[in-house]
Computed example of a mutant assay.
Amino acid sequence: MSDAALSARYDFAVSLAQQAGAVAMRHFRRSDGLRIIEKGPQDLVTAADHAIDALIRNAIQSRFPDDGILTEESGGDISAQVWVVDPIDGTGNFARGIAGFAISIAFSLNGDTRIGVVFDPVVEELFVARRGHGAFCNGERMRVSTTATMGRAAVEAGYSRRTSSSDYLALMARLLDAGCECVQFGSAARGLAQVAAGRIDGYVEAHLFAWDVLAGLLLVEEAGGYADPFPLEGNGQKGLPVRACTRGLARQLQEAMNGASDRLDKMS
């Protein structure tokens, strides 16, 4: 694919994320209520998720009819050039009127994420990255923090019910014992954007899907951080562990995720 074709898709993704954000805000904290469906325990979908999914899918099919599409709400399949989308990442927060959600749009070419856009419409922060071109928030270049020790790190440890509570609590214990400050904001896409912006130092979670993380992982990489590979295979709906952080924390966070019994180094 030519550089011009990628540039066109980048500009399109930025505009589309902002349009999706406007739809989200029309539904957010509506006085007449919001239609909410339970897909499972603590797994919600709203009318806004479906409206944004339709907006994004229709726009891509109209502008780039040969591109594949994979979204959380309507599925799809992996192809050589494919859009991977979460209409609202952090639906649990969104449905409760909590300002902690984002629109996530990624474009992958031959299994390599080339474009990543995460938009937080509440605070109007637009996080964007293109492979090899850096990562930016509202036009300002982002860099991950310089934190290299667990005793100085703030790490988001994401959780879903696809992970056992005992495994999650054990991970939290290892992080806390190693000296981390742990947070949990409820949106992987938004959390990864915070890592890229240098506001927190790492994000870990035992099981996430491509639509949750592809855009955010590219943000972290292009901001100079470390991110585990997240290969797109089959229909793209296989979940994997995720670790994204400063390069100085990569080994230590891997040990925590692996359940290493030895106490992690805590350098002053």
Rank of each mutant, 00 (worst) to 15 (best):
A153Y: 05
G198S: 12
G132I: 09
C180S: 11
R143P: 04
D167H: 15
A193F: 07
H207Q: 11
G186M: 06
Y159S: 03
M172W: 07
M172R: 14
L192E: 00
E156S: 06
G158P: 02
W211G: 02
T149G: 12
F119I: 07
D167R: 15
Q194Y: 09
V144F: 02
R190Y: 09
G139D: 09
A193E: 08
R190W: 05
Y168R: 11
C180V: 08
G186E: 04
T113K: 01
S160V: 00
G198T: 06
F185I: 08
V122R: 11
R199C: 08
E140T: 14
A173V: 11
W211H: 01
G191P: 03
L192N: 01
A193V: 09
I115F: 03
G134S: 13
D177P: 02
F136R: 15
T147W: 08
H207D: 06
S145F: 07
V204P: 02
V128R: 00
R174Y: 07
L192W: 05
A157P: 03
S160N: 13
E181C: 14
R162C: 05
D177I: 05
V118T: 08
R143I: 00
D201V: 03
L175K: 04
G116H: 03
A170R: 15
A170H: 14
I115N: 00
R190S: 10
V118L: 10
L175Y: 00
T113V: 05
A188S: 11
F136I: 04
D120K: 15
G202I: 01
Y203R: 04
E125Y: 12
G198K: 09
E181V: 13
F127G: 04
L176V: 09
A188N: 02
M150W: 07
L171G: 01
V118W: 02
A189I: 04
S165W: 15
A197V: 03
V128W: 01
E205H: 02
R190E: 07
A129E: 01
C137E: 06
Q184T: 12
V128M: 07
V123T: 15
I200N: 00
T147E: 12
G139Y: 12
G179E: 05
T147S: 14
M150A: 12
G139F: 11
G134N: 13
R162G: 12
R141T: 10
E124S: 15
V195N: 00
M142D: 06
R143V: 05
S187T: 13
F119A: 05
L176W: 09
I200W: 01
